[in-house]
Simulated scan of single mutants.
Amino acid sequence: MKVVILSDTHMPKRGGMFPERFINELDQADHIIHAGDWSTLEVYETLSEYAPVTGVQGNIDDEQIIEKMPEREIITLKGFRIGIVHGHGSGKTTDRRAFDTFIDEPVDVIIFGHSHIPSLRYFKQRLLINPGSLMDKRTNPYYSFAVMNLEEGIEVRHIFFS
């Protein structure tokens, strides 16, 4: 199962169309996960044309996204429990806030965004994934998103592009 992971699209402020490199991956996606800061519901609607979409609200999302998306979500794909949260708040690092959101939940993977900093690491036996930002790289050298393959195990890779 191929899962495309993105966050912090900030559309249309940061661009009105998805990058071609991203669309190439969407064409083969079985599921899409968005970790918040969509900005508008049109982002969800466009992604839904490619595959089922699961997502959460971020701290800059409009009222339509807030009404449609929860603050956090847990889904199961191919037997793996995946926690999704944007990661904004005060105190601690974004990674730690995301981890603490699911501290009492038996999840295998935690997907979050907010910082626009791509990361992939294990912390206390949980895989933490921040796809970075598809449309707003800030001080990073490249835009990014992640692709997760779920079969017997979990394989994740970031895709960086300019």
Score class of each variant (00 low, 15 high):
L6G: 00
D8Y: 11
D8M: 10
T9K: 06
H10R: 10
M11Y: 03
K13H: 14
G15M: 07
M17P: 00
E20M: 06
D27P: 00
Q28N: 11
D30T: 06
A35P: 04
D37G: 10
T40H: 04
E42C: 00
Y44W: 13
T46A: 09
S48D: 00
Y50L: 00
V53Q: 01
G55C: 04
Q57G: 06
N59L: 11
I60E: 09
D62E: 14
K68R: 14
T76M: 12
L77K: 14
L77P: 01
F80N: 07
F80D: 02
I82T: 12
I82V: 14
I82E: 12
G83P: 01
I84K: 06
H86Q: 10
G87Y: 07
H88E: 07
S90R: 13
G91N: 13
K92W: 05
R96D: 07
R96V: 05
F99R: 10
T101M: 15
F102Q: 02
I103M: 10
D104M: 10
D104I: 00
P106N: 14
P106V: 01
D108F: 08
D108P: 06
V109C: 11
I110L: 06
F112D: 05
F112W: 11
H114P: 03
P118H: 14
P118N: 13
P118D: 13
R121T: 07
K124H: 08
Q125Y: 08
R126C: 07
N130H: 11
P131Y: 05
G132Q: 09
D136T: 06
K137V: 01
R138Y: 09
Y142V: 01
S144F: 09
F145M: 01
V147T: 09
M148K: 03
E151D: 15
E152S: 14
V156Y: 07
V156G: 01
S162T: 13
